[in-house]
Design a protein around this nucleic acid. Structure first.
Length: 617
DNA sequence: CATAATC
Protein backbone atom coordinates (compact mmCIF):
# COMPACT_ATOMS: atom_id res chain seq x y z
CA UNK A 1 0.00 0.00 0.00
CA UNK A 2 1.06 3.48 -0.74
CA UNK A 3 1.84 5.74 2.13
CA UNK A 4 -1.02 8.03 2.85
CA UNK A 5 -0.54 11.68 3.57
CA UNK A 6 -1.17 10.89 7.19
CA UNK A 7 1.66 8.38 7.17
CA UNK A 8 4.00 10.82 5.56
CA UNK A 9 3.04 13.53 7.96
CA UNK A 10 3.55 11.22 10.88
CA UNK A 11 6.91 10.11 9.58
CA UNK A 12 7.90 13.63 8.91
CA UNK A 13 6.87 14.73 12.39
CA UNK A 14 8.73 11.86 13.99
CA UNK A 15 11.72 12.67 11.93
CA UNK A 16 11.64 16.33 12.80
CA UNK A 17 11.19 15.89 16.50
CA UNK A 18 14.78 15.09 17.48
CA UNK A 19 16.35 17.59 15.13
CA UNK A 20 14.26 20.36 16.58
CA UNK A 21 16.33 20.14 19.74
CA UNK A 22 19.59 20.96 18.11
CA UNK A 23 18.16 23.42 15.70
CA UNK A 24 20.96 25.84 16.57
CA UNK A 25 23.66 23.94 14.85
CA UNK A 26 21.65 22.52 12.03
CA UNK A 27 19.18 23.66 9.47
CA UNK A 28 15.86 24.83 10.72
CA UNK A 29 13.68 21.77 10.59
CA UNK A 30 10.46 23.50 9.73
CA UNK A 31 11.82 25.50 6.82
CA UNK A 32 13.21 23.35 4.07
CA UNK A 33 16.46 24.70 2.80
CA UNK A 34 17.65 24.00 -0.65
CA UNK A 35 20.39 21.42 -0.82
CA UNK A 36 21.75 20.38 -4.17
CA UNK A 37 21.12 16.75 -4.99
CA UNK A 38 24.70 15.65 -4.65
CA UNK A 39 24.84 16.93 -1.09
CA UNK A 40 21.55 15.51 0.09
CA UNK A 41 20.92 12.76 2.57
CA UNK A 42 24.12 13.32 4.40
CA UNK A 43 24.19 13.38 8.12
CA UNK A 44 22.89 16.63 9.54
CA UNK A 45 26.17 17.67 11.06
CA UNK A 46 28.38 16.56 8.24
CA UNK A 47 29.43 19.71 6.52
CA UNK A 48 32.57 18.39 4.92
CA UNK A 49 32.64 15.84 2.15
CA UNK A 50 33.06 12.29 3.27
CA UNK A 51 36.57 10.93 3.38
CA UNK A 52 37.91 9.65 0.15
CA UNK A 53 37.52 6.08 1.31
CA UNK A 54 33.81 6.44 0.94
CA UNK A 55 34.11 7.43 -2.66
CA UNK A 56 33.25 5.63 -5.80
CA UNK A 57 35.70 2.84 -5.28
CA UNK A 58 33.55 1.50 -2.52
CA UNK A 59 31.59 -1.52 -3.40
CA UNK A 60 27.94 -1.55 -2.60
CA UNK A 61 26.55 -5.00 -2.33
CA UNK A 62 22.92 -4.96 -3.19
CA UNK A 63 20.72 -6.37 -0.46
CA UNK A 64 18.39 -9.15 -1.51
CA UNK A 65 15.14 -7.77 -2.75
CA UNK A 66 13.23 -9.40 0.05
CA UNK A 67 14.99 -7.05 2.44
CA UNK A 68 13.20 -4.21 0.82
CA UNK A 69 9.69 -5.38 1.17
CA UNK A 70 7.31 -4.77 3.95
CA UNK A 71 7.15 -1.61 5.91
CA UNK A 72 10.77 -1.21 6.89
CA UNK A 73 13.08 1.00 4.98
CA UNK A 74 15.58 -0.44 2.66
CA UNK A 75 19.16 -0.15 3.88
CA UNK A 76 20.76 2.98 2.53
CA UNK A 77 22.78 2.17 -0.55
CA UNK A 78 26.00 3.87 -1.35
CA UNK A 79 25.49 5.73 -4.53
CA UNK A 80 28.86 5.35 -6.05
CA UNK A 81 28.10 7.23 -9.14
CA UNK A 82 30.92 6.96 -11.58
CA UNK A 83 32.35 10.27 -12.62
CA UNK A 84 31.06 12.22 -9.68
CA UNK A 85 33.42 14.27 -7.70
CA UNK A 86 35.06 11.91 -5.29
CA UNK A 87 33.94 12.21 -1.74
CA UNK A 88 30.25 12.60 -2.32
CA UNK A 89 29.75 8.91 -2.28
CA UNK A 90 28.03 8.51 1.02
CA UNK A 91 24.63 9.92 0.63
CA UNK A 92 22.86 7.87 3.17
CA UNK A 93 19.17 7.41 2.93
CA UNK A 94 17.09 9.25 5.45
CA UNK A 95 20.03 11.14 6.88
CA UNK A 96 17.98 14.25 7.28
CA UNK A 97 20.51 16.64 5.84
CA UNK A 98 18.69 17.41 2.65
CA UNK A 99 15.11 17.58 1.64
CA UNK A 100 14.78 13.85 1.55
CA UNK A 101 14.40 13.41 5.24
CA UNK A 102 12.46 10.26 4.74
CA UNK A 103 11.60 8.79 1.46
CA UNK A 104 8.75 6.34 1.29
CA UNK A 105 9.89 3.09 -0.22
CA UNK A 106 8.05 2.91 -3.53
CA UNK A 107 8.84 -0.78 -3.72
CA UNK A 108 7.26 -1.47 -0.36
CA UNK A 109 4.16 -2.94 -1.91
CA UNK A 110 6.14 -5.59 -3.70
CA UNK A 111 5.16 -9.05 -2.66
CA UNK A 112 7.13 -11.04 -0.17
CA UNK A 113 8.97 -13.84 -1.83
CA UNK A 114 7.15 -16.46 0.20
CA UNK A 115 3.88 -15.23 -1.11
CA UNK A 116 3.13 -16.86 -4.43
CA UNK A 117 3.04 -14.56 -7.37
CA UNK A 118 -0.41 -13.29 -8.09
CA UNK A 119 -1.78 -14.14 -11.44
CA UNK A 120 -1.28 -10.52 -12.38
CA UNK A 121 2.40 -10.69 -11.66
CA UNK A 122 2.88 -13.94 -13.45
CA UNK A 123 1.34 -12.37 -16.47
CA UNK A 124 3.48 -9.31 -16.09
CA UNK A 125 6.53 -11.41 -16.57
CA UNK A 126 5.10 -12.92 -19.69
CA UNK A 127 6.76 -10.53 -22.06
CA UNK A 128 6.87 -11.84 -25.55
CA UNK A 129 10.33 -10.76 -26.55
CA UNK A 130 10.02 -12.42 -29.90
CA UNK A 131 7.39 -9.88 -30.80
CA UNK A 132 10.00 -7.15 -30.54
CA UNK A 133 12.67 -8.70 -32.69
CA UNK A 134 11.53 -7.09 -35.86
CA UNK A 135 10.19 -3.79 -34.65
CA UNK A 136 11.16 -1.20 -37.22
CA UNK A 137 12.94 1.88 -35.96
CA UNK A 138 13.48 5.11 -37.79
CA UNK A 139 15.65 7.97 -36.66
CA UNK A 140 16.48 11.22 -38.34
CA UNK A 141 18.44 14.29 -37.43
CA UNK A 142 22.14 14.93 -37.31
CA UNK A 143 24.63 12.73 -35.46
CA UNK A 144 22.26 10.27 -33.93
CA UNK A 145 23.92 8.41 -31.05
CA UNK A 146 23.80 4.65 -31.59
CA UNK A 147 21.34 2.57 -29.58
CA UNK A 148 22.32 0.26 -26.76
CA UNK A 149 21.31 -3.31 -26.18
CA UNK A 150 21.53 -3.51 -22.42
CA UNK A 151 21.13 -1.25 -19.42
CA UNK A 152 24.69 -2.13 -18.47
CA UNK A 153 26.01 -0.37 -21.55
CA UNK A 154 24.43 2.83 -20.35
CA UNK A 155 26.18 4.36 -17.44
CA UNK A 156 23.27 5.36 -15.29
CA UNK A 157 24.99 4.92 -11.96
CA UNK A 158 24.59 2.36 -9.23
CA UNK A 159 21.56 3.87 -7.53
CA UNK A 160 19.58 3.97 -10.73
CA UNK A 161 20.79 0.52 -11.74
CA UNK A 162 19.60 -0.86 -8.47
CA UNK A 163 16.17 0.64 -9.02
CA UNK A 164 16.10 -0.89 -12.47
CA UNK A 165 16.77 -4.24 -10.83
CA UNK A 166 14.09 -3.60 -8.25
CA UNK A 167 11.69 -2.87 -11.06
CA UNK A 168 12.73 -6.26 -12.46
CA UNK A 169 13.68 -4.75 -15.77
CA UNK A 170 16.29 -6.89 -17.44
CA UNK A 171 16.71 -5.12 -20.71
CA UNK A 172 15.66 -1.92 -22.30
CA UNK A 173 12.66 -1.77 -24.60
CA UNK A 174 13.19 -0.59 -28.17
CA UNK A 175 12.26 3.01 -27.42
CA UNK A 176 14.58 3.00 -24.41
CA UNK A 177 17.45 1.50 -26.37
CA UNK A 178 17.32 4.42 -28.76
CA UNK A 179 15.95 7.28 -26.69
CA UNK A 180 18.18 6.95 -23.64
CA UNK A 181 21.49 7.36 -25.50
CA UNK A 182 20.02 10.29 -27.40
CA UNK A 183 18.93 11.97 -24.20
CA UNK A 184 22.15 11.21 -22.37
CA UNK A 185 23.98 12.87 -25.25
CA UNK A 186 22.05 16.00 -24.41
CA UNK A 187 20.01 16.04 -27.57
CA UNK A 188 16.43 17.19 -27.96
CA UNK A 189 14.10 14.42 -28.98
CA UNK A 190 10.75 13.86 -30.60
CA UNK A 191 9.82 10.25 -30.07
CA UNK A 192 6.94 8.23 -31.43
CA UNK A 193 6.35 5.04 -29.55
CA UNK A 194 3.30 3.20 -28.41
CA UNK A 195 2.23 3.86 -24.87
CA UNK A 196 3.11 0.88 -22.82
CA UNK A 197 6.42 0.68 -24.61
CA UNK A 198 8.44 2.03 -21.72
CA UNK A 199 8.38 5.70 -22.52
CA UNK A 200 8.22 6.85 -18.93
CA UNK A 201 11.52 5.21 -18.11
CA UNK A 202 12.93 6.40 -21.42
CA UNK A 203 12.69 10.02 -20.33
CA UNK A 204 13.04 9.51 -16.58
CA UNK A 205 16.34 7.66 -16.59
CA UNK A 206 18.28 10.36 -18.45
CA UNK A 207 16.67 13.11 -16.40
CA UNK A 208 17.47 11.48 -13.08
CA UNK A 209 20.96 10.60 -14.20
CA UNK A 210 21.52 14.10 -15.53
CA UNK A 211 20.37 15.70 -12.30
CA UNK A 212 22.65 13.45 -10.30
CA UNK A 213 25.71 14.17 -12.38
CA UNK A 214 25.01 17.76 -13.31
CA UNK A 215 26.23 20.90 -11.68
CA UNK A 216 24.61 21.58 -8.35
CA UNK A 217 21.81 24.01 -8.78
CA UNK A 218 22.04 27.54 -7.48
CA UNK A 219 20.28 28.20 -4.28
CA UNK A 220 17.15 30.21 -4.73
CA UNK A 221 17.06 33.51 -2.84
CA UNK A 222 16.49 33.05 0.86
CA UNK A 223 13.05 33.43 2.26
CA UNK A 224 11.39 33.13 -1.09
CA UNK A 225 8.79 30.42 -1.17
CA UNK A 226 9.24 29.88 -4.85
CA UNK A 227 10.64 26.47 -5.70
CA UNK A 228 12.72 25.82 -8.78
CA UNK A 229 12.49 22.33 -10.23
CA UNK A 230 15.24 21.21 -12.58
CA UNK A 231 12.95 19.09 -14.69
CA UNK A 232 9.33 19.45 -15.73
CA UNK A 233 7.17 16.61 -17.00
CA UNK A 234 3.77 17.59 -18.38
CA UNK A 235 0.91 15.26 -19.21
CA UNK A 236 -2.66 15.83 -20.35
CA UNK A 237 -4.59 14.10 -17.58
CA UNK A 238 -4.36 13.98 -13.83
CA UNK A 239 -4.34 10.21 -13.69
CA UNK A 240 -1.50 10.05 -16.15
CA UNK A 241 0.49 12.54 -14.12
CA UNK A 242 -0.11 10.42 -11.05
CA UNK A 243 1.06 7.35 -12.89
CA UNK A 244 4.21 9.04 -14.14
CA UNK A 245 4.89 10.26 -10.63
CA UNK A 246 4.55 6.75 -9.21
CA UNK A 247 6.93 5.41 -11.81
CA UNK A 248 9.42 8.21 -11.46
CA UNK A 249 9.55 7.78 -7.69
CA UNK A 250 10.66 4.20 -8.18
CA UNK A 251 13.37 5.21 -10.58
CA UNK A 252 14.56 8.01 -8.31
CA UNK A 253 14.45 6.05 -5.07
CA UNK A 254 17.48 6.82 -2.92
CA UNK A 255 19.14 8.81 -5.64
CA UNK A 256 18.53 12.02 -3.74
CA UNK A 257 16.46 13.26 -6.67
CA UNK A 258 13.03 14.35 -5.50
CA UNK A 259 9.93 13.92 -7.62
CA UNK A 260 6.75 15.86 -6.84
CA UNK A 261 3.39 15.79 -8.61
CA UNK A 262 0.89 18.63 -8.96
CA UNK A 263 -2.54 18.38 -10.55
CA UNK A 264 -5.95 19.89 -10.18
CA UNK A 265 -9.00 18.56 -8.42
CA UNK A 266 -6.98 17.81 -5.32
CA UNK A 267 -6.26 20.12 -2.39
CA UNK A 268 -3.45 22.42 -3.35
CA UNK A 269 -2.08 22.80 0.16
CA UNK A 270 -0.78 19.29 0.34
CA UNK A 271 0.94 19.72 -3.01
CA UNK A 272 2.42 23.02 -1.83
CA UNK A 273 3.84 21.33 1.24
CA UNK A 274 5.40 18.64 -0.90
CA UNK A 275 6.89 21.29 -3.16
CA UNK A 276 8.33 23.17 -0.21
CA UNK A 277 10.11 20.06 0.93
CA UNK A 278 12.03 20.40 -2.29
CA UNK A 279 11.59 19.34 -5.87
CA UNK A 280 13.93 18.30 -8.64
CA UNK A 281 11.44 16.77 -11.02
CA UNK A 282 7.96 18.25 -11.14
CA UNK A 283 5.27 16.16 -12.81
CA UNK A 284 2.18 18.22 -13.51
CA UNK A 285 -0.94 18.84 -15.51
CA UNK A 286 -1.00 22.22 -17.24
CA UNK A 287 -3.80 23.93 -15.34
CA UNK A 288 -2.45 23.37 -11.87
CA UNK A 289 1.04 24.27 -12.98
CA UNK A 290 -0.15 27.59 -14.40
CA UNK A 291 -1.86 28.23 -11.09
CA UNK A 292 1.35 27.50 -9.20
CA UNK A 293 3.34 29.71 -11.55
CA UNK A 294 0.93 32.59 -11.18
CA UNK A 295 1.07 32.28 -7.41
CA UNK A 296 4.84 32.35 -7.79
CA UNK A 297 5.12 29.14 -5.84
CA UNK A 298 7.00 27.54 -8.69
CA UNK A 299 9.54 29.08 -11.01
CA UNK A 300 10.78 27.45 -14.17
CA UNK A 301 14.00 29.42 -14.37
CA UNK A 302 16.14 26.46 -13.38
CA UNK A 303 14.56 24.00 -15.78
CA UNK A 304 17.14 21.86 -17.54
CA UNK A 305 14.82 19.15 -18.78
CA UNK A 306 11.35 19.46 -20.23
CA UNK A 307 9.37 16.36 -21.13
CA UNK A 308 5.93 16.37 -22.68
CA UNK A 309 4.15 13.05 -22.51
CA UNK A 310 1.36 12.50 -25.02
CA UNK A 311 2.89 15.50 -26.71
CA UNK A 312 0.52 15.55 -29.65
CA UNK A 313 -2.40 15.90 -27.27
CA UNK A 314 -0.58 18.59 -25.34
CA UNK A 315 -0.25 20.62 -28.50
CA UNK A 316 -3.71 20.13 -29.93
CA UNK A 317 -6.25 22.92 -30.02
CA UNK A 318 -7.42 22.64 -26.47
CA UNK A 319 -4.03 22.52 -24.81
CA UNK A 320 -1.70 24.46 -27.03
CA UNK A 321 -2.24 27.94 -25.52
CA UNK A 322 -1.56 26.68 -22.01
CA UNK A 323 1.51 24.81 -23.10
CA UNK A 324 2.84 27.80 -25.00
CA UNK A 325 2.26 29.93 -21.97
CA UNK A 326 4.18 27.54 -19.75
CA UNK A 327 7.00 26.89 -22.17
CA UNK A 328 7.35 30.26 -23.88
CA UNK A 329 5.84 32.95 -21.72
CA UNK A 330 6.95 32.14 -18.22
CA UNK A 331 10.54 32.02 -17.06
CA UNK A 332 11.63 28.77 -18.61
CA UNK A 333 14.98 28.81 -20.40
CA UNK A 334 14.49 28.80 -24.18
CA UNK A 335 14.94 25.82 -26.46
CA UNK A 336 18.62 25.08 -26.72
CA UNK A 337 19.25 26.24 -23.17
CA UNK A 338 17.25 23.31 -21.86
CA UNK A 339 16.81 19.76 -23.06
CA UNK A 340 13.38 19.00 -24.46
CA UNK A 341 11.86 15.58 -25.01
CA UNK A 342 8.49 14.99 -26.60
CA UNK A 343 6.84 11.59 -26.50
CA UNK A 344 3.68 10.26 -28.01
CA UNK A 345 2.27 7.22 -29.72
CA UNK A 346 0.99 9.40 -32.54
CA UNK A 347 2.48 12.53 -34.04
CA UNK A 348 0.46 14.20 -36.81
CA UNK A 349 2.71 16.37 -38.88
CA UNK A 350 0.85 19.62 -38.17
CA UNK A 351 1.56 18.95 -34.52
CA UNK A 352 5.18 18.19 -35.29
CA UNK A 353 5.43 21.59 -36.90
CA UNK A 354 4.06 23.26 -33.77
CA UNK A 355 6.27 21.15 -31.58
CA UNK A 356 9.42 22.08 -33.43
CA UNK A 357 9.10 25.55 -31.87
CA UNK A 358 9.99 23.95 -28.57
CA UNK A 359 12.94 21.98 -29.86
CA UNK A 360 16.48 22.71 -30.93
CA UNK A 361 18.37 20.55 -33.42
CA UNK A 362 16.31 17.59 -32.39
CA UNK A 363 16.36 13.94 -33.29
CA UNK A 364 13.19 12.31 -34.49
CA UNK A 365 12.70 8.74 -33.37
CA UNK A 366 9.90 6.43 -34.44
CA UNK A 367 9.57 2.96 -33.00
CA UNK A 368 7.10 0.72 -34.70
CA UNK A 369 4.00 -0.16 -32.85
CA UNK A 370 4.19 -3.45 -31.11
CA UNK A 371 0.62 -4.50 -31.45
CA UNK A 372 -0.18 -3.67 -35.01
CA UNK A 373 1.96 -5.90 -37.12
CA UNK A 374 1.91 -8.83 -34.77
CA UNK A 375 -1.83 -8.97 -34.27
CA UNK A 376 -1.53 -8.54 -30.54
CA UNK A 377 -4.72 -6.56 -30.66
CA UNK A 378 -7.54 -8.30 -32.41
CA UNK A 379 -9.52 -5.43 -33.92
CA UNK A 380 -13.14 -5.92 -34.86
CA UNK A 381 -15.66 -3.49 -36.28
CA UNK A 382 -19.34 -4.20 -36.12
CA UNK A 383 -22.11 -2.28 -37.74
CA UNK A 384 -24.42 -1.19 -34.94
CA UNK A 385 -27.20 1.39 -35.08
CA UNK A 386 -27.26 3.90 -32.24
CA UNK A 387 -30.44 2.34 -30.88
CA UNK A 388 -28.92 -1.14 -30.81
CA UNK A 389 -25.67 -0.28 -29.09
CA UNK A 390 -26.75 -1.15 -25.58
CA UNK A 391 -28.10 -4.57 -26.32
CA UNK A 392 -25.10 -5.24 -28.49
CA UNK A 393 -22.79 -4.29 -25.66
CA UNK A 394 -24.73 -6.59 -23.39
CA UNK A 395 -24.05 -9.48 -25.78
CA UNK A 396 -20.34 -8.72 -25.76
CA UNK A 397 -20.27 -8.52 -21.99
CA UNK A 398 -22.08 -11.81 -21.64
CA UNK A 399 -19.54 -13.43 -23.89
CA UNK A 400 -16.75 -11.79 -21.93
CA UNK A 401 -18.19 -13.05 -18.69
CA UNK A 402 -17.50 -16.60 -19.77
CA UNK A 403 -13.90 -15.62 -20.42
CA UNK A 404 -13.32 -14.49 -16.88
CA UNK A 405 -10.59 -16.16 -14.92
CA UNK A 406 -11.07 -17.46 -11.41
CA UNK A 407 -14.67 -16.37 -11.25
CA UNK A 408 -13.70 -12.81 -12.01
CA UNK A 409 -14.91 -11.14 -15.11
CA UNK A 410 -12.20 -10.02 -17.49
CA UNK A 411 -11.69 -6.25 -17.54
CA UNK A 412 -13.60 -4.39 -20.21
CA UNK A 413 -13.02 -0.73 -20.99
CA UNK A 414 -15.91 0.94 -22.80
CA UNK A 415 -15.26 4.26 -24.51
CA UNK A 416 -18.06 6.72 -25.14
CA UNK A 417 -17.99 10.19 -26.62
CA UNK A 418 -19.58 12.31 -23.91
CA UNK A 419 -19.57 12.61 -20.15
CA UNK A 420 -23.36 12.43 -20.01
CA UNK A 421 -23.27 9.37 -22.20
CA UNK A 422 -20.79 7.78 -19.84
CA UNK A 423 -23.04 8.33 -16.81
CA UNK A 424 -26.11 7.09 -18.67
CA UNK A 425 -24.41 3.94 -19.85
CA UNK A 426 -22.94 3.19 -16.46
CA UNK A 427 -26.37 3.61 -14.88
CA UNK A 428 -27.94 1.31 -17.42
CA UNK A 429 -25.25 -1.34 -17.00
CA UNK A 430 -25.66 -1.31 -13.24
CA UNK A 431 -29.43 -1.63 -13.61
CA UNK A 432 -28.77 -4.71 -15.66
CA UNK A 433 -26.49 -6.19 -13.05
CA UNK A 434 -23.25 -5.50 -14.79
CA UNK A 435 -20.73 -4.18 -12.29
CA UNK A 436 -19.70 -0.94 -13.94
CA UNK A 437 -18.22 2.37 -12.97
CA UNK A 438 -17.21 5.43 -14.92
CA UNK A 439 -14.42 7.92 -15.30
CA UNK A 440 -14.80 11.33 -16.93
CA UNK A 441 -14.14 14.98 -16.37
CA UNK A 442 -17.42 15.78 -14.64
CA UNK A 443 -16.64 13.47 -11.76
CA UNK A 444 -14.70 14.63 -8.76
CA UNK A 445 -11.08 13.67 -8.62
CA UNK A 446 -11.86 11.31 -5.77
CA UNK A 447 -14.54 9.60 -7.82
CA UNK A 448 -12.20 9.35 -10.79
CA UNK A 449 -9.44 7.80 -8.76
CA UNK A 450 -11.68 5.36 -6.94
CA UNK A 451 -13.29 4.31 -10.22
CA UNK A 452 -9.87 3.58 -11.67
CA UNK A 453 -8.81 1.68 -8.56
CA UNK A 454 -11.99 -0.34 -8.51
CA UNK A 455 -11.56 -1.23 -12.16
CA UNK A 456 -7.91 -2.17 -11.83
CA UNK A 457 -8.63 -4.38 -8.84
CA UNK A 458 -11.35 -6.21 -10.70
CA UNK A 459 -14.02 -5.18 -8.22
CA UNK A 460 -15.76 -3.32 -11.00
CA UNK A 461 -14.62 -5.08 -14.15
CA UNK A 462 -16.42 -2.71 -16.49
CA UNK A 463 -15.22 0.87 -16.84
CA UNK A 464 -17.13 3.35 -18.97
CA UNK A 465 -14.80 6.16 -19.95
CA UNK A 466 -14.46 9.27 -22.03
CA UNK A 467 -11.19 10.09 -23.71
CA UNK A 468 -9.78 11.07 -20.34
CA UNK A 469 -8.78 7.41 -20.09
CA UNK A 470 -7.72 7.03 -23.70
CA UNK A 471 -4.09 7.92 -23.32
CA UNK A 472 -1.16 6.60 -21.46
CA UNK A 473 -2.93 4.94 -18.58
CA UNK A 474 -1.37 1.62 -17.80
CA UNK A 475 -4.12 -0.69 -16.69
CA UNK A 476 -2.86 -4.24 -16.71
CA UNK A 477 -5.16 -6.96 -17.96
CA UNK A 478 -7.68 -5.01 -19.93
CA UNK A 479 -8.99 -7.89 -22.01
CA UNK A 480 -11.39 -5.92 -24.14
CA UNK A 481 -11.71 -2.33 -25.32
CA UNK A 482 -15.12 -1.47 -26.71
CA UNK A 483 -15.49 1.66 -28.80
CA UNK A 484 -19.17 2.11 -27.98
CA UNK A 485 -18.88 5.50 -29.68
CA UNK A 486 -16.00 5.78 -32.12
CA UNK A 487 -13.86 8.90 -31.80
CA UNK A 488 -13.68 11.42 -34.62
CA UNK A 489 -9.95 11.15 -34.88
CA UNK A 490 -8.16 7.97 -35.85
CA UNK A 491 -5.29 8.83 -33.54
CA UNK A 492 -7.68 8.75 -30.61
CA UNK A 493 -8.77 5.30 -31.76
CA UNK A 494 -5.14 4.19 -31.76
CA UNK A 495 -4.67 5.46 -28.22
CA UNK A 496 -7.90 3.89 -26.98
CA UNK A 497 -7.24 0.40 -28.28
CA UNK A 498 -3.72 0.71 -26.90
CA UNK A 499 -5.22 0.24 -23.42
CA UNK A 500 -5.33 -3.46 -24.23
CA UNK A 501 -2.75 -5.76 -25.76
CA UNK A 502 -0.11 -4.23 -23.56
CA UNK A 503 3.32 -5.56 -22.67
CA UNK A 504 3.26 -8.13 -25.41
CA UNK A 505 -0.05 -9.65 -24.40
CA UNK A 506 -3.07 -10.19 -26.58
CA UNK A 507 -6.09 -7.97 -26.47
CA UNK A 508 -9.42 -7.51 -28.15
CA UNK A 509 -10.86 -4.25 -29.45
CA UNK A 510 -14.42 -4.01 -30.73
CA UNK A 511 -15.81 -0.89 -32.38
CA UNK A 512 -19.45 -0.03 -33.01
CA UNK A 513 -19.67 1.67 -36.37
CA UNK A 514 -22.60 3.36 -38.06
CA UNK A 515 -23.34 6.28 -40.40
CA UNK A 516 -22.27 8.78 -37.78
CA UNK A 517 -18.72 7.51 -38.12
CA UNK A 518 -18.46 7.77 -41.89
CA UNK A 519 -15.64 10.26 -41.69
CA UNK A 520 -13.54 7.71 -39.87
CA UNK A 521 -14.20 4.89 -42.32
CA UNK A 522 -11.23 5.41 -44.56
CA UNK A 523 -8.61 5.85 -41.88
CA UNK A 524 -10.04 3.01 -39.84
CA UNK A 525 -9.94 0.74 -42.85
CA UNK A 526 -6.36 1.69 -43.63
CA UNK A 527 -5.26 1.25 -40.07
CA UNK A 528 -6.83 -2.16 -39.80
CA UNK A 529 -5.33 -3.24 -43.10
CA UNK A 530 -1.90 -2.17 -42.00
CA UNK A 531 -2.39 -4.18 -38.83
CA UNK A 532 -3.35 -7.28 -40.80
CA UNK A 533 -6.88 -7.16 -39.51
CA UNK A 534 -9.88 -8.39 -41.37
CA UNK A 535 -11.75 -5.44 -42.83
CA UNK A 536 -15.45 -6.08 -43.36
CA UNK A 537 -16.65 -5.41 -46.89
CA UNK A 538 -19.27 -2.96 -45.72
CA UNK A 539 -16.57 -0.86 -44.06
CA UNK A 540 -14.61 -0.71 -47.30
CA UNK A 541 -17.74 0.51 -49.05
CA UNK A 542 -18.09 3.26 -46.45
CA UNK A 543 -14.46 4.10 -46.92
CA UNK A 544 -14.71 4.28 -50.71
CA UNK A 545 -17.81 6.43 -50.49
CA UNK A 546 -16.54 8.98 -48.01
CA UNK A 547 -12.96 9.48 -48.96
CA UNK A 548 -12.72 10.96 -52.42
CA UNK A 549 -10.66 13.89 -51.35
CA UNK A 550 -8.23 11.80 -49.37
CA UNK A 551 -9.82 12.87 -46.15
CA UNK A 552 -8.55 14.90 -43.28
CA UNK A 553 -8.13 11.87 -41.18
CA UNK A 554 -5.46 10.11 -43.11
CA UNK A 555 -2.64 8.88 -41.01
CA UNK A 556 0.51 10.78 -41.51
CA UNK A 557 3.11 8.10 -41.57
CA UNK A 558 1.75 4.75 -42.47
CA UNK A 559 1.09 1.79 -40.33
CA UNK A 560 4.20 0.77 -38.60
CA UNK A 561 4.88 4.06 -36.90
CA UNK A 562 2.71 6.52 -35.11
CA UNK A 563 4.30 9.21 -37.23
CA UNK A 564 7.12 10.18 -39.46
CA UNK A 565 9.52 13.09 -39.25
CA UNK A 566 7.73 15.96 -40.95
CA UNK A 567 11.11 17.45 -41.84
CA UNK A 568 11.48 14.63 -44.30
CA UNK A 569 8.18 15.14 -46.06
CA UNK A 570 8.69 15.31 -49.77
CA UNK A 571 11.44 12.78 -49.93
CA UNK A 572 8.94 10.27 -48.66
CA UNK A 573 7.39 7.87 -51.08
CA UNK A 574 4.58 5.79 -49.76
CA UNK A 575 4.55 2.06 -49.98
CA UNK A 576 8.16 1.48 -50.82
CA UNK A 577 10.67 -0.17 -48.63
CA UNK A 578 12.65 3.05 -48.50
CA UNK A 579 11.13 3.53 -45.10
CA UNK A 580 14.47 3.18 -43.44
CA UNK A 581 17.79 4.42 -44.49
CA UNK A 582 16.56 7.31 -46.54
CA UNK A 583 17.82 10.83 -46.01
CA UNK A 584 20.03 11.30 -43.04
CA UNK A 585 18.73 8.30 -41.25
CA UNK A 586 21.14 6.94 -38.75
CA UNK A 587 22.33 4.24 -41.06
CA UNK A 588 23.19 0.78 -39.99
CA UNK A 589 20.60 -0.10 -37.49
CA UNK A 590 17.46 1.44 -38.82
CA UNK A 591 16.20 -1.52 -40.76
CA UNK A 592 14.42 -4.46 -39.27
CA UNK A 593 16.79 -6.98 -37.86
CA UNK A 594 19.72 -4.65 -38.14
CA UNK A 595 20.09 -4.61 -34.42
CA UNK A 596 19.00 -8.13 -33.72
CA UNK A 597 20.44 -10.11 -30.91
CA UNK A 598 19.26 -7.85 -28.17
CA UNK A 599 16.30 -9.98 -27.34
CA UNK A 600 17.72 -13.37 -27.92
CA UNK A 601 16.38 -14.83 -24.75
CA UNK A 602 14.39 -17.46 -26.51
CA UNK A 603 11.21 -16.88 -24.61
CA UNK A 604 8.55 -17.96 -26.97
CA UNK A 605 4.96 -16.97 -26.72
CA UNK A 606 3.68 -15.40 -23.58
CA UNK A 607 5.33 -17.77 -21.21
CA UNK A 608 8.62 -16.21 -20.25
CA UNK A 609 10.06 -17.42 -17.01
CA UNK A 610 9.37 -15.58 -13.79
CA UNK A 611 11.47 -12.52 -13.25
CA UNK A 612 12.20 -12.17 -16.90
CA UNK A 613 10.76 -8.90 -17.80
CA UNK A 614 11.55 -5.83 -19.67
CA UNK A 615 11.23 -2.19 -18.90
CA UNK A 616 7.81 -2.07 -20.37
CA UNK A 617 5.68 0.39 -18.42
C1' DC B 1 -19.18 19.04 -32.25
C1' DA B 2 -16.63 16.52 -27.95
C1' DT B 3 -12.67 15.63 -24.69
C1' DA B 4 -9.09 17.42 -21.20
C1' DA B 5 -6.97 21.26 -18.08
C1' DT B 6 -6.81 25.92 -11.85
C1' DC B 7 -9.99 27.90 -8.14
Amino acid sequence: MRSSWADLAANSAAENAPTANNANNTQAPSRPVYVPPHLRNRGPTQSAPAPASASSSDKFSAPPLSDNVGSRWAPPPRNDYRGRAAGFGNRTGGGGGGWDRREANPFADQDDSEEPLTQQEQENTGINFDAYEDIPVETSGGNVPPPVNTFAEIDLGEALNQNIRRCKYVRPTPVQRHAIPISLAGRDLMACAQTGSGKTAAFCFPIISGIMTGQPAQRPPRGVRTVCPLALVLSPTRELSMQIHEEAKKFAYQTGVRVVVAYGGAPINQQLRELERGVDILVATPGRLVDLLERARVSLQMIRYLALDEADRMLDMGFEPQIRKIVEQMDMPPAGARQTMLFSATFPKEIQRLASDFLSNYIFLAVGRVGSSTDLIDQRVEYVQESDKRSHLMDLLHAQRANGVQGKQALTLVFVETKKGADALEHWLCLNNFPATTIHGDRTQQERESALRSFKSGNTPILVATDVAARGLDIPHVAHVVNFDLPNDIDDYVHRIGRTGRAGKKGLATAFFNENNSSLARSLQDLMQEANQEVPAWLSRFAARSSFGGGKNRRSGGGRFGGRDFRREGSFSRGGSDYHGAGNSSGGYGASGGYGGGYGGGYGGNTAGPGVTSAWD
